[in-house]
Structures are given as structure tokens and as C-alpha cells.
Simulated scan of single mutants.
Amino acid sequence: MKVIVINRKHGGSRSFELGRWSRALLSLCCLGLPLGMVAAGYVAGLESEAQALRGESVDAMADELAQQSQELEAIRDEAEQKLQALTLSLAELQARMTRLDALGEHLTAMAELEDGEFDFSQPPALGGPLAGEFEVDYSSLDLTGELESFSRRLSDREQQLAILESLLNNRRLEDEAWLSGRPIEKGWVSSHYGKRNDPFTGQPAFHHGIDFAGKEGSGVLAVAGGVVTWVGERAGYGHMVEISHGDGLVSRYGHNKQNLVAPGDVVRKGETIALMGSSGRSTGAHVHFEVYKHGRSVDPSSYVRRTRR
């Protein structure tokens, strides 16, 4: 292959003869340059696309992290609310347990149980050998279910204790209405029930009660709980108090210095209802004690000798 080079300035020309290798090199340069440019452009495009993809991936990861952060915050808020609810539930259960302990101590005192037999101020004593080695999976514990179960047990305990208290109160009411003991704290029997010589006439007469002599102004006590049905002066009795105890039983307390109750009052066993005196047909400070059963006078001695249930 021959190449002619023309010089415009001098008007001359020169020719070169290209051999086979020269022609090959020239062809390679002429073809390789465009191909190289195309290849460089392709590589640059790939790099740009890779950078764009990396940017999109980073943005997607940032969005996902932000969403996960929001979800984590929501979970944390929900857990906080549940924890507060559990705390309130535990506080309520603790208050109920405190009331149950107080009720248990009250019932123990009412039942007059021996010291140490029941102690509601201490947790129950528990124990026993470990039945094999095991691990507790705390992740599987249902705290809400445990609280509900604990609440049900407390409700059952409250109901049983309420029934026990009702039974004890009924028993106490029966004890209150049980006529027994003397109508005075200190003193002696100065006259029995039945026939005797009248202290004013000296003639035989029937005495419908028992006279308990003592110090003037000392307390006159109700021998049983009941309702006051009469307060005032009555012929022969002086200042008198009458109490109805139910089941047809009525007790009377005469010759009082001063009555301390009024009609309609509910009195308890052993309550002071009057002060001992010598009002009415009396020779000295004493209380005239009578018991009526279904409207008929009966000997109070059997009731005086009774003991508490």
C-alpha cells in the first residue's frame, strides 16, 4: 500500500510504501479508537448506573430503618401502657389482699382463736423439695392470665371470708340473746325467788325475782342483748327497766337510782342500763331482777347460773 504526502507550501510531494504490518497497525488504530471510545462510554454508563443503584439502596435502607424505628417506638409505648396497667392491677390486688388480711385478723379475734393458730399478718409458710431440675421459659408466661387467675382466687377468698364473718356474726347475735350471768358486777344475793316473808309486813308472800344487793350507784347490767320495751316508774318497782330478748323472754331490773336507757334502745349483753338504787318499795340499795317467759314469771336462778355459749 502506497501513501502520498503533499506539501502545500512548496508544492512537492512524498510517497511512502506501507508494508503488511504497517497496514495492520494503521487499521488497528483507525478501528480501535472508536471501539475504545465506545467501550469507555459503556464502562462509564455502568459505573453511573451502579452509583444510582447504590444510592437507591441506601435510601431504601434509610426508609426501612426509619419505619422500624417508628414501629419500635410504638411497641415501646404499648409495652409501657401494659406495664402501667399491670402495675395498677397489682396495686389493686395488693389493696384487696390487705383488706382480706384485716378481715382475717378481725375474724380471728371474733372467734377467740388461740394466738398463733391464724396469723394473717404473715405470708403463708410454704416449702418442699425441688421435683427435678427444670428451666422456666419466661417468654411463654402469660402475665395477664396469671393476674386474672390471682384475681379469681382473691374473689373466692373474699366470698368465703364474708360467709365466715356472717356465720360468726350470727353466732355472736345468738350469744348476745343468750340470757346468762348476774345483772351486777359486784354484790350478793339478798333474797331468792319464791315464797318468803314480806320485809315490810312480815307476812308470807311470793317473791317473783332475785334481789342482788350492792353499792348504791354501781352499774346494773343487761344479762342479754335485746330491745328496751319499758323505762320509768312502776308501782312497787320504783325506777325500772324492761328488756325484750326475743323467743318470749323478758327481763326486768327494778329499784334503780337512775335509768340510763330509753324505750326502743338496742342494748348489748353486759351493757350498763341503770345505776343501782333503792327506789320504790325497797329497804336498801339493790336490784330486783325478774325473768318472764311467754308472759309468765320464772325463776331467774337457772339463767344466773348459765355460762356463756
Rank of each mutant, 00 (worst) to 15 (best):
K82V: 07
L83Q: 13
L83P: 02
L83F: 15
A85P: 00
A85M: 09
A85W: 14
T87V: 09
S89Q: 13
S89F: 10
S89I: 10
L90F: 10
L93E: 09
Q94P: 04
Q94N: 14
Q94M: 08
A95I: 03
R96S: 11
R96T: 09
R96I: 02
M97Q: 11
T98S: 14
R99C: 00
R99I: 02
R99F: 10
L100T: 00
D101M: 12
A102N: 07
A102Q: 06
L103V: 00
L103K: 05
G104C: 03
G104R: 01
E105N: 03
L107P: 00
T108L: 04
T108Q: 11
T108N: 04
A109L: 08
M110W: 01
M110H: 00
L113S: 02
L113K: 06
L113W: 02
L113H: 02
E114D: 07
E114M: 02
E114Y: 05
D115C: 01
G116K: 09
G116S: 09
E117L: 10
F118S: 03
D119W: 04
D119N: 13
D119C: 03
F120N: 01
S121L: 02
S121E: 05
Q122A: 12
Q122D: 04
Q122F: 02
Q122H: 03
P123F: 04
P124H: 15
P124R: 15
A125C: 08
P129R: 09
L130T: 13
A131T: 10
A131D: 11
A131S: 13
G132L: 05
G132Y: 08
E133T: 14
E133I: 13
E133K: 14
E133N: 15
F134A: 15
F134M: 02
V136T: 09
D137M: 03
D137F: 01
Y138P: 04
Y138W: 08
Y138Q: 14
Y138V: 09
S139A: 10
S139C: 07
S139L: 10
S140K: 14
S140V: 10
L141G: 03
D142M: 00
L143F: 15
T144Q: 08
G145C: 09
E146K: 09
L147I: 15
S149V: 15
S149L: 15
F150D: 03
F150E: 14
R153E: 14
S155P: 00
S155N: 11
D156Q: 06
D156R: 12
D156L: 10
R157L: 11
R157Y: 06
Q159F: 13
Q159I: 14
Q160A: 12
Q160L: 13
Q160I: 11
A162N: 12
I163Y: 04
I163S: 14
L164R: 03
E165D: 05
S166W: 03
L167D: 10
L167K: 11
L168S: 01
N169G: 03
N169M: 10
R172A: 07
R172L: 12
L173S: 13
E174V: 04
E174M: 04
D175L: 07
D175A: 13
E176L: 06
E176C: 01
A177S: 14
A177R: 12
A177F: 09
L179G: 04
L179N: 01
L179V: 07
L179P: 04
G181R: 02
G181L: 01
P183L: 03
I184S: 00
I184C: 01
E185F: 10
K186C: 01
G187H: 08
W188M: 08
